[in-house]
Amino acid sequence: MHASLVQREEEFMKTYHTYVDMVYRICFLYFKNHSDTEDIVQNVFLKLYTSNPLFKDESHKKAWLIVTASNMCKNGIKNWWKQNVMFKEFDVASHDTKDETLEALLNLPKKYKTVLYCYYYEGYHTNEIANMLHMNEATVRSYLHRGRSYLRELLEGEKNEE
């Protein structure tokens, strides 16, 4: 029993170190500040630790973490203050200048964020995203298209302002 507990903890720590950056990125896209992001990241891994779900393989585990993080963020962001919080806190490490692309990503409507992240960062196909997020594949493609349009508008708007 003790050995299994130690094994479970070791496995959890391995999972944590592998996926903490990924979960952090997803949560940061929603919350736009580090303190709230840290809270939600902890809650996501705490859920993994306490519920100890059975995974078929590593990709299943990764998908579970993406979906759980996304859902927890959506629930957490329902708070009025968090919905209205402005992009202030973020400071890009080793970059003194403001990152326009990141700012545009953070200002995207929240329903497009996970889809865009999974497609462009993690490299999932639309059918995989549709299965993971329990959505229609056409909806995923539509979200991608609209998300891209939003990003283009946001980035072109900033360039025109300059």
Partner: peptide, 30 residues
């Protein structure tokens, strides 16, 4: 997309602190 989001990551100290909080089940949730 990858280059932009690669800049968003927690520091090693923060990672360790979060892990410690999770293992002691003491989440400091706002």
């Amino acid at each position: 997309f990858i280059q932009t989001l690669n800049k968003v990551k927690p520091s090693k100290e923060k990672k360790d602190k979060m892990l410690e909080n999770i293992l002691t089940k003491k989440t400091t949730s706002k």
